[in-house]
């Protein structure tokens, strides 16, 4: 087992929460490795976080340009080989655009950007990123987005529900009109998770509404130990 696991955090031009994601990785005990959007290499990291923000300005459609970046091509290939990947907010949008996760994230139903401390229910703990939670846990994690309304065709939604691939669900008010109150989902293998809420903003009582986001980063370290 390596002394410290190395978790990559991607910076696109327009990434905003990359520092926060790196801070969360360090808080969980791993080393944060900065990955540059233009480099077609993952520098041998053990897992990757795609952080929040507005990659390349997101003027076309959130995540639509980022999916064509050299680093995302590497991430897609590695994820298909089992690399743990977490997409937060814009990262979730990139994962959907790149086909690692199904569905899409569209403009919030209320048409406003929404920043609030959001209650969530943990629905699935078999992923690389959620083993430190229990199914049914209620947690509080900030959401902050203008395009976070998860949608997919009926067959996809049925499949996600049937296969327990919904990982987090909004509680106490759906901030964006997402179908089935879906806040986060996983791929079939459970190594790729995408969610709209920001666990990196809930790792310390002083700066967040809770420390409920920290287990996500601790979970992946456990998963890496298990490998």
């Amino acid at each position: 087992m390596p002394a410290t696991f190395r978790v990559g955090v991607v910076t696109f031009p327009g990434s905003l929460d990359d520092r926060d994601a790196a801070r969360a990785v360090r808080a969980a005990g791993a080393e944060a490795v900065s990955l540059w959007h233009g480099d077609a290499t993952l520098h041998g990291v053990d897992a990757v976080v795609l952080p929040g923000g507005f990659s390349y300005g997101d003027y076309l459609r959130a995540g639509a340009i980022a999916r064509f970046s050299p680093v995302v091509a590497e991430i897609v290939a590695a994820a298909n080989d089992g690399l743990p990947v977490l997409g937060i907010c814009n990262g979730f949008q990139v994962l959907c655009e790149s086909g690692l996760l199904p569905g899409a994230l569209i403009r919030n139903a209320g048409l406003h950007f929404v920043c609030r401390d959001q209650r969530l229910r943990v629905e699935c703990t078999t992923t690389r990123w959620t083993s430190h939670y229990a199914v049914g846990d209620e947690i509080v994690i900030p959401v902050k987005h203008g395009e976070g309304r998860y949608v997919a065709d009926a067959a996809t939604i049925d499949e996600l529900e049937r296969d327990a691939r919904v990982v987090f669900r909004y509680l106490g008010g759906n901030p964006n009109g997402a179908l089935n109150d879906i806040a986060g989902i996983r791929n079939a293998a459970g190594n790729v998770v995408g969610l709209m809420p920001h666990p990196e903003h809930a790792i310390e009582a002083l700066t967040g509404p809770s420390i409920d986001g920290l287990p996500m980063f601790a979970s992946v370290i456990d998963a890496l130990v298990a490998v």
Partner: peptide
């Protein structure tokens, strides 16, 4: 009003 503003980014907001 304030819900339309990100108050968390950069991780330093106390």
């Amino acid at each position: 009003v304030t819900e339309q503003y990100d108050r968390y980014v950069l991780g330093g907001t106390v």
